[in-house]
Simulated assay, not measured.
Amino acid sequence: MAVHAAERLGNRGGAAIGEAGDDIARDRPGVPTGLFDDGGTMTGIVNLLEDVSDRAVAYEAAQRLAAIIETSADAILTKDLDSIITSWNGGTQRLFGYAAEEIIGKSVSMLVLPDRPDEEPNILTRIGAGERIEHYETTRRRKDGTLVDISLSVSPIADHSGRIMGASTIARDISERRRAEEQQHLLIREMDHRVKNLFSLASSIVSLSRRSATSMDDLASAVMSRLNALSQAHALTVPHTSTASTRLQQGTTLHRLMRSILSPYDECDGKLGSRVTIEGPDIDVASGAGNGFALLFHEFATNAAKYGALSVPGGGMDIRCEDQGATFVLTWRERGGPRIARAPDGDGFGSLLARSTVRGQLGGEIEREWKPEGLFIRLVVATDRFAG
């Protein structure tokens, strides 16, 4: 509120002084200003006193909010309705790799993948209509070209009149969650696959045992023996964090691992160890790597028992190990099984799982060749992967 000294001085200074005081007080709030008459004599002082408490509180709140945003672990940015970035906090720099000075003033579309041209316009259309967007999952490109899975929450920004002038975006990295979900889905599929295989394996074991059994007691004993061997092989695939698998905790050798898994099928006419030969150098397998190798050999043996050399009485296989220094090579050659006219169409889940295990966990390569006399597999693994 302006308090005019001219009003307290009566007629001294007159209307001209009052008018000048209004102009001065309005132009220089909070600064005392002299008033002069036509002769240059100071006749009074004009001062404007303004209550700025609310302004100071608002400024302090704004500073606090800016500090919170800047130090937030979340990526927070703002943009106008033309997708031009107007602010960029430290979390956004850590997520996408761009410093604020590199990207403020540029279009947010530089983060959007080329195959999603309509994504950003659709978001802005919804924001322009006053809509909030919660937990929108998408993929963005970082400065270094790598992709990152994110969840977006986008809110409209309005001016004092309520007109929407831009958007505030919070982005969270959900890459770890996505990987965990994919791993969970793979494990569920693997569990379903293994359960189905168990029924097939049980049937195969009963069928194999029946051929050499001379009595019901003999059959029961053979089936129980093979199921027990299969159970022991299964124990080697239990994750090493489980207290139920002390053998895997202690590690094993490659030959012992293969014999344990193949033992339910390695019998012909009552003679154990007559269908499978394992030659070449043995190698220690640490607990961390045992799960991957056990999973592979279990898959190979399952397929051989269902469709290959181990599905008929006279079939067998030869396994050869070669230590080549930096790499360890294993060849799996089936013989005497059903004649193979051609390779199967497409890859089953077992094949996909085998490739995923070899390349992902073991860092190796696997080749399959469907020869008429039986399946041939060549597995190459870096020697240091056996240490887990």
Score class of each variant (00 low, 15 high):
248 L>T: 10
269 D>I: 04
291 N>I: 10
254 L>M: 08
240 H>L: 12
303 N>S: 11
240 H>F: 14
297 F>R: 00
268 C>K: 08
237 T>S: 15
244 A>C: 11
251 G>K: 06
289 A>Y: 04
270 G>H: 08
275 R>T: 01
275 R>Y: 06
257 L>T: 02
238 V>A: 09
308 G>E: 07
244 A>H: 14
285 V>E: 02
294 A>Q: 03
307 Y>S: 07
309 A>S: 15
309 A>W: 03
239 P>N: 08
262 L>C: 04
282 D>I: 05
265 Y>D: 04
292 G>F: 06
294 A>G: 15
303 N>H: 11
263 S>C: 09
299 E>A: 11
317 M>A: 15
318 D>H: 12
255 H>M: 08
251 G>F: 02
307 Y>D: 06
270 G>V: 06
288 G>H: 13
272 L>R: 10
314 G>W: 05
257 L>S: 00
282 D>E: 11
243 T>R: 14
319 I>G: 07
311 S>Q: 05
271 K>L: 14
296 L>E: 02
252 T>Q: 02
312 V>D: 10
263 S>P: 09
263 S>N: 07
257 L>R: 00
302 T>N: 10
299 E>M: 09
267 E>Y: 02
291 N>E: 12
305 A>Q: 02
244 A>G: 10
299 E>V: 07
319 I>E: 05
248 L>G: 12
287 S>V: 11
262 L>G: 00
273 G>E: 03
243 T>V: 15
287 S>D: 14
269 D>M: 06
283 I>C: 09
292 G>D: 07
254 L>I: 06
262 L>A: 04
295 L>F: 07
271 K>C: 12
240 H>Y: 11
273 G>Q: 06
276 V>T: 09
305 A>S: 15
251 G>W: 01
261 I>S: 01
305 A>Y: 01
241 T>I: 14
313 P>Y: 03
248 L>F: 08
236 L>C: 04
260 S>W: 01
318 D>P: 00
312 V>E: 13
301 A>L: 03
318 D>T: 10
314 G>D: 09
265 Y>G: 01
288 G>W: 05
258 M>H: 03
241 T>E: 13
242 S>C: 10
315 G>E: 08
249 Q>G: 11
278 I>N: 05
239 P>G: 04
309 A>Y: 04
287 S>N: 12
263 S>Q: 11
312 V>N: 14
291 N>W: 08
295 L>V: 11
247 R>D: 09
301 A>D: 00
247 R>H: 12
268 C>I: 12
266 D>H: 03
257 L>N: 00
256 R>V: 10
